[in-house]
Simulated scan of single mutants.
Amino acid sequence: MTSEMITADAAGTWTLGDLTVARVGFGAMRLTGSAAFHLGTPSDRERAIAVLRRAVELGVDHIDTAAFYFSRLRSANEIINSALSPYPDGLLIAAKVGPFRDYHGEWGTSARPDQLRGHVEENLRQLGRDHLDLVYLRRMRQDSVAEHFGALAELRDKGLIRHLGVSDVEPRHLAEALAIAPVVAVQNRYALDSPDPATDELLRVCGEQGIAFVPFYAVAGRRGPQAADADAGADHDEVLAVARAHDATPAQIRIAWTLHQGPHVLAIPGTGNPGHLAENVAAGALRLTDDELRRLDALRRPAG
């Protein structure tokens, strides 16, 4: 499909609290140079800056990032700041807190509730902002999110955060968070070939409650962070067949399928490649048939 002139508004919009965004956004993890952001060769900085600026030109108004998105020589937040500051009106920047990496890139234990303010302030410093539009608490295997989420709710009350979300959670964790403060978005791993009944239930609950569901690894699927950027040659036969029918790439079909899961579902595909960026945005214009959706949905059913 021709992608150069298609903009993000082709996918429609969704409102996060009081902020309306296009349903196709941009994930910043790959700006550091690798699908697994803590590995591999750092990206070309000027190319990454150009990709971000082109994303905004294409109508992308939702960027997902984190202070722990950095590689040996690159910080996603620093690149975002350099590329887009002063930030255009209407641009939503979402950040995640909870995981911790030291300056050598090594993962530490999950942040304590009293450390989350420091994580938020580090994102603010790197991005050059006085508040964050949306902050996700990324659950790090803890059974309860109440204490951590409560700490973020206090920062929202102080004006450092505008809206709150949760990530890598089960439905019970969402209910726990909602009892403390409003949740505008949930970010979990979700892809057509990664079946997970708990996540399917979470997607349904979010739809019923008007909460955005924002999948990560939607393009990489079960291959996860090790998948190549928009790897077109290694995919399921059904994905390849639907892609041929639409003169599209497999990555575009995966994004389109994601968006077809409900009007509250947003996509945040990431890339450091300008051509792939245009393709990702254009995927929001694809309309899959009921038969194509049935064939793709079958990939979510466990074998047997």
Rank of each mutant, 00 (worst) to 15 (best):
W107S: 15
D229Y: 07
F213D: 07
R254Q: 08
L192D: 08
S110F: 08
V166S: 02
R138N: 15
A234F: 08
M29I: 01
D130Y: 09
L52P: 03
K96W: 08
R101K: 14
A227Y: 06
S34F: 01
L155F: 04
D133W: 08
P225N: 05
R129A: 08
L84M: 11
H246I: 07
A175M: 03
R254Y: 00
R156E: 13
A95G: 10
Y69N: 00
H119T: 07
Q261G: 01
T289C: 04
T289E: 03
T65Y: 04
V60Q: 01
V186E: 00
V281T: 12
Q252M: 11
I211M: 00
I161M: 06
H38K: 07
A234C: 05
A111P: 00
G304D: 14
T41C: 04
H236T: 11
V120A: 09
D133V: 02
V205Q: 09
T20Y: 00
G210N: 11
R162C: 08
R72I: 00
P215D: 04
E4K: 06
V51Y: 14
A111T: 07
Q115W: 03
G27H: 01
P113I: 06
S144G: 10
A50T: 05
L164K: 09
R300G: 11
D168M: 06
R301D: 14
G105C: 04
D231H: 14
P171C: 08
S85P: 02
A227P: 04
R125Y: 13
Y69A: 00
R138H: 15
S3T: 15
H163E: 06
P302K: 06
D291P: 11
V186Q: 01
D133H: 14
A151F: 09
A228I: 08
R45Y: 14
L203P: 06
T20E: 09
G27D: 04
L84Y: 12
D193Q: 10
E121Q: 15
P88R: 05
V205T: 11
D229I: 01
A48Q: 14
N273G: 06
L16F: 15
L259R: 03
F100S: 13
G159A: 02
T199S: 09
E238H: 07
A212P: 04
R189Q: 15
G221S: 06
T2V: 00
R129T: 08
I49F: 01
V56R: 01
L277N: 06
W107G: 05
S3G: 00
A227M: 03
G207W: 05
R139Y: 00
V97W: 09
E170Y: 08
L124G: 08
A282E: 03
E147Q: 13
G262I: 08
L84N: 12
Y103N: 00
R72H: 12
G207E: 02
E154S: 13
F149M: 07
I93W: 02
F100W: 13
Q126L: 12
A248P: 06
P195A: 02
R30H: 04
L52M: 03
R301L: 15
R141M: 14
L174V: 05
V205W: 04
L174R: 03
A55M: 10
G40R: 07
E170L: 14
I180C: 03
Y87F: 12
Q115G: 02
L296W: 15
D235C: 12
Q209W: 14
A282R: 06
D89T: 10
R287W: 00
A232S: 04
V97Y: 09
H173F: 05
E4D: 09
